[in-house]
Design a binder for these strands. Structure first.
Lengths: 337, 337
DNA sequence: ATGAAAGCGCTAACAT
DNA sequence: ATGTTAGCGCTTTCAT
C-alpha cells in the first residue's frame, strides 16, 4: 500500500503572517505584538490576550532567524557526534543517545536548541554559527578536539582529561573505573591479568592507567591486546591473538562491553570458562552486557547526567562564566563474570 | 584533577567581522564578498581568492540567521525523538541513533541542518521555524503524529502506515516482518503460538497482523501477552503471566529484541528450553540480540537506510515535490532461537 | 501602556 | 565583473 501525497500548503518560513500583520489585525503596533507574545509586563493584559488569540487564529509562526539576527545570538548549541555507520557499532555505542538525552533536556529547558552534526559534515555554516559546541568523544589522539577548537567557539568535550589540554572536559572517572576493575581482580586473587582496548583513545588510556596503577601496587603486570575497532568481532579477534601469546590469563578488563563480549566469546571458543577460569569486566554497563549470558560485570557511568552537565557547562561558557572541567563518579556493577 | 578555565574570547555571534568589514578591507562591495564566499561564478577568480584570504585571516564567521532571514528559509529540519530517560530502554532502543545517522548524513550533504528535539521540549520556537519535521515514532495511538501535524510543517514520520493517515510515512515492512516470523514457526511445525507486544503502537499492531494472517491460513491461533513497556523486565513479566494461562506454548514472537530477551529469561526460569521447547523470534536485530546467548533470531530492518530515506522525503516535501509513503523490506535473521 | 525609528547581516533584483 | 538599493522580521532604544 502506497499513498500519494499532494504537496499541500505548508508553512514555508516567511509565508505566514508576521508580527506586523497581527498588529494590523489587532489595531496595535508591531512592537506591542512582540511584547505581548513575549509575555512582557509592559503590555495591558487585555491587549495581550487579544493579540495572542489573533496569533493563534492566524497560525502565526515566530521567525527565529529574525530574532536571532536582532539579538545577535542564535540560542543554539551544536552537538557533534562521531557517527560512522558500521555494522555492529554505533560510536562507543550507548553513549551518544543517553548523552544526547541529557543535553537536549537541559538545553531545551534553557530555551536553547540542539543542532546535531556529525564530525564529517561538521563545518557547515550553521554549526559555525552556534553559540557553543559540545563534542562527544575527543577522537583518537584528540584529533576531533583540535579541529573543533579552531572554530573559536565555546566548547565542551565529553571524554577524558588530557594533561595539557586547553578546553573544558566532562567525563566519567576513567582512572577510577580502571582501578575498580583492578581491585576486583585482586580481591578475586587473579594474577594473570589482561587489558583489551586501544589506548589511542584518551578515555581508554585513562582506564588502563587506573587499572595498571592498582595492579602495580600488588606487583601485578598487565598483558595488553589492542582491538582494531570497538566491536564484538574485533574484541574476539584481539583476544584470540592475545591467548596465543598468553594462554593462561585468568582475568580480563575490556574498554567497552562490546569488546568484553567479544572476549568472552573468544575465551569460550578456546575452552576457557567465564568466570570460573577467567574473570571478565567490561565498561559502560550497557543493557547489552547486562542481559548477556553470562551477565557481564561492568563499570557504570551515568551518561544522562553527563549530558546534563555538558549542557550546563556549555551554557555557562556562553554566558561568560568561569567553567571547570569535571569528572563524574563511576562504579563497578558486579554480575556473573 | 580539575582545571579552571578563564572565560576567554570566543566568538559571540555578531562580535566578529561582517561581510561589510571584509568588503572594506578588500576594497570591494559587500555583495562581492557575498558572492565570493558563495563561490559564485559571477566574481573574478582573483578577487574571490583575495576575499577568501581576508575572510580567513579575519576569522570571519558567516551569520546564518541573517541569510535565513533574507532567504526566508532556515535550511533546517527538526527531528523529534521520543526520549524518556529510562533504566533499560532508550526509546525502541537501537532506533534513533541509526536513523539519526542516516538522516544527518543525508541532510548534511544537502546543506541542511538537523535540529534535534524531544517530544517534551518539542514546541520550542526554533522547531516551529524548521523547514520540515521528521518524527521518529508515531507514539501510542499516533498521539505524537497528531501533535506535530498541528504545526502545519512538512512532516515525515517513521513508523507504520495507518489506514486513514494524512501524512508521509517511512517504515519497515512490519506486516511482512510478522509474516516471516509466522512462516518460520509453521516450517518448524510449531502450533501453540504466542505474540508479545503492545498493539497500541501501530508498528506493533502491523507486526501482529502479518503474523496472524499467515498463521490463520494454517488454522493456527495466537495467544497474546501485553508488556507494560519495551523493556527486558516488562517482557519477562508479561511472559510469566502468559505462561500461567498457557504453559504449553512452543513458539513466541516478540515485538522487540528486548522483549524477546525478557521472554527467553522467563521461559528459562520456568524450565522451558529455548529453542528446544519454545522457539523465539525478536524484532530489530539488535547487536544485543545477536550477541545474546542463545543468539536471538530476529526480524531485521535497515535503519540507517531508513534515515536516509526519511531525510530525502523531507527535502522533497520542502521543495514542493510529490512524495509517497514508503515501506522498506525486512528480513528474518535466523540464529539459535 | 503604547508607539516610531532604526538597524541587526545578508542577498535578490536591478543597474552599470 | 562589480555596485546600489532595498528589505527580510524582529526588538532595543527613546519618545509619548
Amino acid at each position: 500500500m502506497t499513498l500519494t501525497r499532494k504537496p499541500s500548503r505548508h508553512r514555508t518560513p516567511g509565508s505566514g503572517p508576521t508580527m506586523a500583520d497581527l498588529a494590523e489585525l489587532a489595531g496595535v503596533s508591531a512592537i506591542t505584538v512582540s511584547r505581548a507574545l513575549a509575555n512582557s509586563p509592559l503590555v495591558n493584559a487585555e491587549t495581550a490576550a487579544r493579540v495572542k488569540a489573533i496569533a493563534e487564529a492566524q497560525g502565526y509562526a515566530f521567525n527565529v532567524s529574525a530574532r536571532n539576527l536582532r539579538l545577535r545570538s542564535n540560542r543554539t548549541v551544536a552537538v557533534i557526534v562521531e557517527m560512522k555507520p558500521s555494522q555492529d557499532r554505533r560510536m562507543s555505542d550507548p553513549y551518544p543517545l543517553d548523552l544526547l538525552g541529557g543535553i537536549s533536556q537541559e538545553l531545551a529547558s534553557a530555551g536553547y536548541c540542539v543542532l546535531l552534526s556529525t564530525r564529517q559534515g561538521g563545518d557547515a555554516a550553521a554549526v559555525r554559527g552556534a553559540d557553543a559546541v559540545i563534542l562527544l568523544g575527543q577522537g583518537a589522539h584528540e584529533d576531533a578536539v583540535e579541529t573543533v577548537a579552531r572554530w573559536h567557539l565555546p566548547m565542551v568535550v565529553w571524554g577524558a582529561q588530557v594533561p595539557h589540554d586547553a578546553h573544558v572536559t566532562v567525563g566519567s572517572d576513567n582512572r577510577r573505573g580502571g582501578a575498580l576493575a583492578a581491585e576486583r581482580f585482586v580481591a578475586l586473587g587473579r594474577h594473570r591479568i589482561a587489558f583489551l582496548g586501544d589506548i589511542a583513545h584518551a578515555e581508554v588510556a585513562a582506564r588502563l592507567a587506573g587499572f595498571e596503577t592498582v595492579l602495580a601496587a600488588h606487583k601485578l603486570k598487565v598483558s595488553q591486546a589492542k582491538p582494531a575497532a570497538f566491536t564484538v568481532a574485533a574484541g574476539a579477534k584481539a583476544t584470540h591473538t592475545l591467548l596465543e601469546r598468553q594462554p593462561q590469563i585468568d582475568a580480563l578488563f575490556a574498554a567497552s562491553d562490546l569488546l568484553a563480549i567479544g572476549a568472552v566469546r573468544a575465551l569460550t571458543e578456546r575452552g576457557r570458562r567465564v568466570p570460573d577460569d577467567v574473570s571478565v569486566i567490561g565498561y559502560d554497563d550497557t543493557p547489552l552486557g547486562a542481559t548477556y549470558v553470562p551477565a557481564l560485570s561492568s563499570v557504570h557511568q551515568n551518561l544522562h547526567e553527563g549530558g546534563v552537565l555538558l549542557a550546563r557547562k556549555a551554557l555557562a561558557l556562553i554566558e561568560g562564566r568561569e567553567v571547570e572541567s569535571e569528572i563524574l563518579p563511576t562504579n563497578l556493577v558486579v554480575r556473573a563474570t
